[in-house]
Computed example of a mutant assay.
Amino acid sequence: MLRLAIFLSCLGGQLLADVVVATRTIRPQQVITDMDVRVQPGTRPGAHSDLIGVLGKEARVAIYPGRAVMRDAVTAPALVDRNQLVELVFAKGPLHIITEGRALGRGGTGDRIRVMNLSSRAVLFGTIVSNGTVDVTP
């Protein structure tokens, strides 16, 4: 009995841990739903342990059935795709300029991407805002 207690204390609670695993192949850029993943007992360093951190996120790489969903394998879903037409917003003081542009990269809220102003053909950097516009204010 003493040996069992020592063994369990050495595990440090790992017996009660859970890991999120894929139930089917999840392709890159696919938004993860509850049909794609499940929680199973086990441990894996760097893997998600609850569904909250995975559901609604987008896969960065392919995740195969039975494999643990690692933390760096998912990210916030992209709002802007490459070559998508976007609204460019420049706002400084009382000056507000809004024009149309083309995204030269892909990203989600807060990501910095390159965009091309369709009027001047100038290439700028901007930050994606939660409504899908790109803020090009320096």
Rank of each mutant, 00 (worst) to 15 (best):
Q84R: 09
V20C: 07
V89Y: 02
P28N: 14
L11G: 06
D18Q: 14
T109C: 04
A22C: 11
G126A: 12
E100C: 03
G66Q: 02
V20W: 02
I52R: 07
G101C: 12
R38E: 13
D135L: 08
R3V: 08
P138K: 13
V86D: 03
R38V: 15
G93A: 07
L51H: 05
R60P: 05
L79K: 14
H48K: 00
V134G: 01
V31R: 09
R67T: 08
A91R: 13
R71G: 08
R38C: 12
L85A: 13
V54T: 07
A17P: 00
T137L: 07
L55R: 07
Q30M: 09
P45L: 12
R67C: 01
V37Y: 01
A122W: 04
A78C: 09
V89L: 10
T25Y: 04
A68S: 06
R60S: 12
V37M: 01
D34S: 12
A91C: 05
K57Y: 14
G56D: 13
A59R: 12
V37G: 03
T133D: 05
P41N: 15
S9I: 01
M1C: 05
I32K: 03
A73K: 04
S119D: 13
Q40T: 14
G105N: 12
I97F: 04
A47M: 01
A68T: 07
R27G: 02
L11P: 00
L2R: 11
L55V: 12
L124Y: 10
A76D: 15
